[in-house]
Design a binder for these strands. Structure first.
Lengths: 150, 150
DNA sequence: CATCAACTATTCACAGATTGAACTGTTCAC
DNA sequence: GTGAACAGTTCAATCTGTGAATAGTTGATG
């Protein structure tokens, strides 16, 4: 019966649909800033310590290095991040989130928290908690997997 | 403490990241066909009975009607769907998935099932099952919410 | 039944996102 | 010291996705 996997009945598909739909929500709320969910992802990865350089971002988010240049350019223009050369390895740019960046993250964090509440409401406390736990674990594993291997 | 919602620690954010990452996986596997995850979503929504017309697709996936035209064009060119006028309302195009379309869905379903297995493996049977249940409920609610309201 | 607004799909031109190739400067191995 | 690999950048080209304008269809309203 495992082989009777109608695509729409899989968790993978549902995760994709729900995730991209949520990305649309974030995109809508970011529209006025001229930023995209990828900009937000960049900001979050840096603040969280998962990424230090542009190369890290490219690997974690699976986008081309040239796109990361653009994302970083635009974030820098808006004073949301700073780029400075790594003294240890002058090829690298070390990224840091500015106060403005943290403030944007907080704002989007509030939106995310509202969504979380809606999820909890829809699923009930118990199942909602399980979802949180599962997602946290998967996210952790994803970040772990992408730390080194390309 | 609910207000100390660091964006990267929210389920909403994780759902977005994991979902879009998964969409990349699907996109990669679809690359040879020249299709995108949105094409796949269209196919799935139609087969599943959530969508009958192009307008339904636009509403469910939150994309512009003009994009749906293109998606449908390309799916039709590849004989994955059929478009025929609704006799009851000749403005509408009723969409149906062809055998070829079902075959592609099955292929992608196999990929999705493999991902599901990996999820189950990573989370353990119990938590994996909870994730499945939560996603199924959320997906159902999403489809329900988008049946009528724009 | 004539009119007009809403609905569904379409076309088109455009803005924005993303990539790959070519290049610069830097580091590291030999 | 030479050359390969690495981090970042630039540029041109492609692909996605949208909004505006349009056509045909339906339904409501007078």
């Amino acid at each position: 019966m495992a082989t009777n996997s109608s695509l729409p009945e899989t968790s993978a598909f549902r995760l994709m649909v729900l995730g991209t739909d949520l990305a649309n929500d974030f995109a809508e709320h970011l529209r006025e800033t001229g930023l995209t969910p990828k900009h937000l992802g960049t900001l979050a990865m840096v603040e969280q310590g998962f990424a230090r350089t542009q190369d890290d971002i490219a690997r974690l988010m699976r986008v081309s290095p040239s796109l990361v240049v653009r994302l970083a350019d635009q974030l820098e223009q808006r004073d949301l991040i700073e780029r400075r050369r790594d003294p240890e390895n002058r090829r690298k740019h070390i990224l840091t989130v500015t106060d403005g960046g943290k403030s944007l993250l907080a704002e989007m964090g509030a939106l995310a928290a509202a969504v979380d509440n809606e999820l909890a409401e829809r699923l009930g406390r118990r199942l909602g908690g399980q979802l949180d736990e599962a997602l946290a674990q998967l996210m952790g594993k994803l970040m772990e997997d992408r730390q080194r291997p390309r």
